[in-house]
Simulated scan of single mutants.
Amino acid sequence: MHVSVIGNPDDTVVVTVRGNLDLDTAPVLRTTLHQVLDRPLPRIVIDLSGVEFCDSTGLSAFVIGHRRAAAVGGWLRLAAPGGWLDGLLRTVGLVPALAVYPSVAEALADEPDASGL
Rank of each mutant, 00 (worst) to 15 (best):
I64V: 07
I64F: 03
G65E: 00
G65F: 00
G65P: 00
H66S: 01
R68E: 03
R68W: 01
A69I: 04
A69D: 01
A70N: 00
A70I: 03
G74R: 01
G74N: 04
W75K: 02
W75S: 13
W75Q: 11
L76A: 07
L76C: 06
R77M: 13
R77Y: 06
R77C: 14
R77D: 08
L78Y: 05
L78A: 12
L78V: 12
L78K: 03
L78S: 06
A79Y: 06
A79R: 01
A80K: 06
P81A: 15
P81W: 06
G82P: 08
G82F: 09
G83S: 14
L85S: 09
D86K: 07
D86S: 15
G87N: 07
L88A: 10
L88E: 05
L88W: 02
L89S: 03
L89P: 00
L89H: 01
T91C: 10
T91R: 02
T91K: 03
V92K: 02
G93V: 05
G93Q: 03
G93N: 04
L94K: 01
L94H: 01
V95E: 12
V95P: 02
V95W: 03
P96D: 12
P96L: 13
A97K: 02
L98N: 06
L98V: 13
L98T: 11
A99W: 03
A99G: 14
A99I: 11
V100R: 04
V100E: 11
V100W: 12
Y101G: 12
P102G: 15
S103G: 14
S103E: 10
S103V: 14
A105V: 15
E106R: 13
E106N: 14
A107I: 12
A107R: 04
L108F: 11
A109P: 04
A109T: 10
D110P: 03
D110N: 06
D110E: 15
